[in-house]
């Protein structure tokens, strides 16, 4: 894994608080606005940035992220531009890990080797590719690891103890635990079930466990962050972007601030997580 990712999670551990992992869609609703959002994330409290790569057929995403991807594609976003977005961000922020998240086909068409070279040059730390399970590791995971790019795997409630070792092999950076079967944008699951699942995965790995799906408010972030090493928020952030747009789906003067204000609230949530857990 990259030194940047390792350093970040080590620092959080020393602080005894979970990471706030924020997902937003690259290019939603346009390149400049999403760059402004990305640049404002660390100061608002985001510890790790998940940068969404739009895809025409996001089979594991709910309506909010589907629409965000469509807005981005409509605005002319491409994988090349998403990598450029990360590179631009990296010019002024050397410390915040960036993880690209999306589907395999755009990377496959870009060319795996070329994509990885460009990602490394842009300062990208990790990849989450939803439709590449461990059975497909030769496609991108192994080549990514060879170039020092983390490959972050999703574990789900269907990933039982028998399958966990398969999922965790070749996983690096952190483990992304999807707290329920389903698509992005679902309701928050019972936090006690989540803490049980986190404990179960921890028995198999020393990697940090970040938990996502269903986290929408500071209170959710606090509850989930009590047991997890990181809390992932995506749909709620994407919905903030959507809610700030004009009737034609274009960014307004409020788009960046409205989105970032949610991140500040979520940041308060993760910072309160352990304090409450310790009571």
């Amino acid at each position: 894994m990259t030194a940047r990712m390792e350093k970040r999670f080590a620092a959080l551990k020393a602080e005894n608080r979970p990471a706030l992992v924020t997902y937003f869609m690259g290019g939603d609703p346009d390149y400049e606005t999403s760059l402004a959002i990305m640049k404002a994330l660390p100061a608002a409290g985001a510890d790790v940035i998940e940068l969404g790569m739009p895809f025409s057929d996001p089979m594991a995403d709910g309506p909010a992220i589907q629409l965000a991807g469509q807005r981005a594609l409509h605005g002319g976003q491409t994988l090349k531009k998403t990598v450029a977005l990360a590179a631009e961000f990296r010019k002024t922020d050397k410390d915040t890990p960036i993880v690209l998240m999306g589907y395999y086909n755009p990377i496959y068409i870009y060319g795996v080797e070329k994509f990885l070279d460009d990602a490394v040059a842009a300062g990208i730390d990790g990849l989450i590719v939803v439709d590449l399970p461990p059975e497909m590791d030769d496609e991108l995971c192994i080549p990514a690891l060879a170039k020092g790019v983390s490959f972050i795997r999703l574990a789900t409630p269907t990933t039982d103890d028998k399958r966990l070792p398969t999922v965790l092999t070749n996983t690096s950076g952190f483990v992304y635990y999807i707290s329920m079967n389903g698509i992005t944008g679902s309701a928050l699951p019972d936090p006690s079930l989540v803490s049980g699942a986190v404990a179960r995965i921890k028995a198999h790995t020393d990697l940090p466990i970040c938990v996502g799906f269903g986290v929408k408010t500071a209170e959710h972030a606090r509850l989930i962050g009590a047991s997890a090493d990181g809390v992932v928020v995506g749909t709620a952030i994407v919905n903030r972007v959507a809610g700030s747009l004009d009737a034609h789906g274009k960014a307004t003067a409020n788009t960046v601030e409205e989105t970032i204000s949610l991140v500040r609230e979520l940041s308060d949530g993760v910072r309160a997580a352990r304090a409450v857990a310790a009571e």
Binding site: A60, E135, L154, V167, I178
Partner: peptide, 20 residues
């Protein structure tokens, strides 16, 4: 055994579906 016809086929699905 991996569901390949030459380079085609395979199992490109989300982890949630893999056990199924």
């Amino acid at each position: 055994e991996n569901g390949r016809f030459g380079i085609y086929g395979g199992r490109f699905v989300a982890e949630t579906l893999m056990p199924l």
